[in-house]
């Protein structure tokens, strides 16, 4: 088993954290702006305006 000493953990926390942050932000922005998702999002945004009729089944 690898000896998880303090310095290793700190170094990992510092370097990996930054990489993770960037990868995640890019992924989320790309997903949100992907053209084929547009229609779905618009329908979702409108869906709450008229939803009091009752459950679908």
């Amino acid at each position: 088993m690898i000896d998880l000493d303090h310095d290793i953990l700190v170094a990992f926390a510092k370097s990996f954290g930054l990489f993770y942050l960037m990868a995640l932000s890019i992924g989320v922005v790309v997903y949100a702006c992907w053209p084929s998702n547009k229609k779905r999002f618009e329908r979702a945004a409108r869906s709450v305006l008229d939803d009091e009729e009752g459950p679908w089944r």
Binding site: L4, D5, H6, L9, F12, A13, F16, G17, Y20
Partner: peptide
């Protein structure tokens, strides 16, 4: 997504004895 932050920030504190 939420867990990584907590783990990265807190895990080193458990070896903080050093």
């Amino acid at each position: 997504v939420a867990g990584i932050g907590g783990i990265v920030e807190i895990a080193p504190l458990f070896t903080i004895g050093e």
